[in-house]
């Protein structure tokens, strides 16, 4: 279980531009829940993910996983049990290394990065099979530099790489936003498959309301640092895109845009 307790996050504190994003924000996510988060720009979606991962500091509050506080834990240690895919496809892979090298490196997450050779040729077939299920033809390009791949191909790899090793949480930060509709569809299907297969607790931020309705078993709509909507269970099943859009427009009008 992931708990956020009384989180306070202030941007540009101590200046005239001081803005308080989260004031006593609370959220509890049970194990194996797939949460979709929607909301307008600046509503705090990405900040929420960054706070969970430890990428940004918080002013007050506690982040608790399985009863233990991880508030003081540095980012890289938290990410040991978290897989994260970013909106920018170039952040999840190494451009000057080959597909095989990238996959090998991702496969070593959680193990020591010592003086053992990193690429294990015996595992190449395993990686090839993983890549083949994408249907992007990557399995025949094991020796190609990742920098030469398209955004969609790189994002597919980033998703595979972040979920290769045993993890508990998957954090998806608008991971289909930079992709064309067809590739986005492929990546989303793959996401659904991986989450179901590995039973991951997942938080997905998206601007695509259709994905938010189709995937996951809980939906959060954020607005100015608080939860505008929190739908799960029976109510979640009957949810339509139109309902969301209506609510979305309502809060946008309140803001004056």
């Amino acid at each position: 279980m992931l708990e956020l307790k009384n989180i306070v996050k202030i941007y540009q504190g101590g200046t005239v531009n001081e803005t308080c994003l989260f004031n006593e924000f609370n959220l509890t996510i049970p194990d194996k829940q797939f949460v979709c988060v929607v909301g307008s720009n600046g509503s705090g979606k990405t900040s929420l993910l960054n706070i969970i991962c430890g990428s940004i500091p918080i002013e007050d509050g506690a982040i608790i996983i399985g009863g233990k506080s991880i508030t003081a834990m540095p980012e890289h240690k938290r990410l040991r049990r978290i897989g994260r895919v970013y909106q920018d496809p170039s952040r999840g892979t190494c451009p000057s290394m080959t597909i095989l090298e990238n996959m090998s490196m991702a496969d070593n997450k959680g193990k020591p990065f010592n003086l053992m050779p990193c690429v294990n040729r015996k595992k190449a077939d395993e990686y090839r099979a993983m890549l083949a299920q994408l249907g992007l033809g990557l399995e025949d390009k094991m020796g190609v530099m990742v920098g030469n791949l398209s955004g969609g191909q790189r994002q597919a790899m980033a998703l595979l790489m972040s979920t290769m090793t045993p993890i508990e949480f998957l954090i998806l930060d608008e991971h289909t936003a930079a992709l064309d509709p067809k590739t986005a569809e492929i990546i989303m299907e793959l996401t659904g498959k991986i989450v179901a297969q590995k039973q991951l607790t997942t938080i997905m931020v998206t601007h695509n309301l259709r994905y938010a309705v189709e995937y996951g078993d809980r939906l959060l709509m954020m607005h100015q640092g608080h939860l505008e909507l929190d739908i799960s269970g029976e109510k979640r099943k009957g949810l339509k895109v139109e309902h969301l859009l209506e609510r979305f427009n309502a809060i946008s009008i309140e803001c004056g845009n």
Binding site: H76, R91, C94, M97, A106, K109, G110
Partner: peptide
């Protein structure tokens, strides 16, 4: 090599 290329990835691999 990854650190020079993409420090974000190094953090995602749970390394400093």
């Amino acid at each position: 090599r990854a650190t020079g290329d993409n420090p974000t990835l190094v953090a995602t691999l749970a390394k400093d």
